[in-house]
Design a protein around this nucleic acid. Structure first.
Lengths: 128, 128
DNA sequence: CTGGATCCTAAACGATACTG
DNA sequence: CAGTATCGTTTAGGATCCAG
């Protein structure tokens, strides 16, 4: 597989397409993005629910991650006009397709955890 | 899907498993890791070939990424006893299974590039 | 050619305080 | 409850020099 991700059609601005592709990959290759998408795979969740579900995420990073994902059209934000306010987040259709990919990552991780731990110990031992 | 990735068997140290899982996710959720794995999907490559294929990667980050992937048993490093030295890198069997996941990310990105660009413009326009 | 070590800057992040 | 803004710290990462 090539590093080039952009659609290299005849008239397209390939350089631009690739820069955007890199940008999007950077968006996805983010621990918090992965965990948020994964959490929303269970269904709609409120801000506070995400906060407690995603272990270790800070107030600031959750907000930033949600804003970015919303901007990219991957999650939908709905504000209930109550007091105190309640805001919930849901995966959009494109967000749900991303969920499949993200699930793939999680499954791969779970399946290879032991392998990797063993490999790391073996590697570290060899440096003695 | 749950945030918990670790194998939560009866006797296992779940906390430990999850901390490792998080660690592994952090390893994969890395721009350079994704690009290196992707590049090696084409087959064995030498250090310098990776350097030129992966646009924008620095000497330091390529070396660090390769060391980490080697430690995790995802790539194999082979040194030819020549002068000057030649070193090539190949995906190991577990590395090749990761490649499928990584390819999924690349495909998803390519397929949703336009969607995301449009969504971003729409979002930004609404902030006027 | 490959790769380690060091310095240094820019960005990411957490903690905290404040608002509707 | 959800969100913004600011500050201070930590980290990632690039540039550079040296070595086998």
């Amino acid at each position: 597989m090539s590093t080039q991700v952009g659609t290299a059609d005849a008239h397209g601005d390939v350089t631009h397409a690739n820069s955007v592709a890199r940008e999007v990959i950077d968006r996805i290759a983010d621990r918090w993005v992965l965990l948020v998408i994964s959490a929303l795979g269970d269904g709609t969740l409120r801000y506070s629910q995400l906060r407690t579900r995603i272990d270790g995420i800070s107030h600031k990073m959750l907000t930033r991650t949600l804003r970015n994902l919303e901007r990219d059209g991957l999650i939908a934000r709905h504000v209930h006009p109550t007091s105190p306010p309640q805001v919930d987040y849901t995966l959009t259709p494109p967000g749900r397709t991303l969920l499949r990919t993200v699930s793939g990552i999680c499954h791969w991780t779970r399946d290879h955890l032991d392998h990797i731990e063993t490999a790391r110990r073996a590697y570290d031992a060899k440096l003695s």
